[in-house]
Design a protein around this nucleic acid. Sequence first.
DNA 1: ATGGTCGGGAACCGA
Length: 255
Amino acid sequence: MKVYTFNVNGINARLPQLLAWLANARPDVVCLQEIKSQDATCPRLEIEALGYHMETHGQKGFNGVALLSREPLTDIVRGLPGDDTDEQSRWIEGTTMGLKIVSLYLPNGNPQPGPKFDYKLAWMDRMIVRARNLLLEEQPLILAGDYNVCPTNNDVHNPSAMAEDALMQPESRSRWRQLFNLGYLDAIRAIEPTAHCYSYWDYQAGAWSKDHGLRIDHLALSPQAADRLKDAGVDRKPRALEKPSDHTPVWCELT
DNA sequence: ATGGTCGGGAACCGA
């Protein structure tokens, strides 16, 4: 089975490209981020017509995450547990095809320092708690999404130009490592140890044509999922189309 | 060179 994560940057603006990509790539499970849509205005019927079940955690104007699967999704959890006052839609859990799957949209955190960076770090601390608890289930599990963290300088086209960016700060990177050091496998780096594997290119300044990208979309595999890891990669084709998202899909294949 | 480009939703905010 192939599991994808894709930050679509507006599910309604991206609907033609998303539908064409689903029909062509035929993913089994998809984690979407930045749907920028309330649940009621999600294009559910068009996606279901392609044979997918869909669960959303939407929000008006910003954020918003969703899960798609060829099989029904059960045990849905909307919102990252641990703070009932958090109103941002950045986390959804579900179970499908014998896999627990999370679609997450980690806060960007810019500018830093500042309240947005504080929110990012607190959100990451809360995520680590949830990720630790989920590991106790000892089941196949993938935490997939836009982490808004470049783990190393090899994940950034121009580290010096990004030195002050929240995506590169030591505080962000150490929390990213705390998460993976719980026992999750970085699927892309397990398959491609050195290639850049960028998943995001800014709309500005011709970043895509110059391959000035970032690796910020990640797949964290529990040990029971990692046992089944067969392959992983980045599907760059959608980024080259007209009216693309600024991200492109990242995937892994489990046996 | 302190810009550049998108999406959402109707003037700017977020990225």
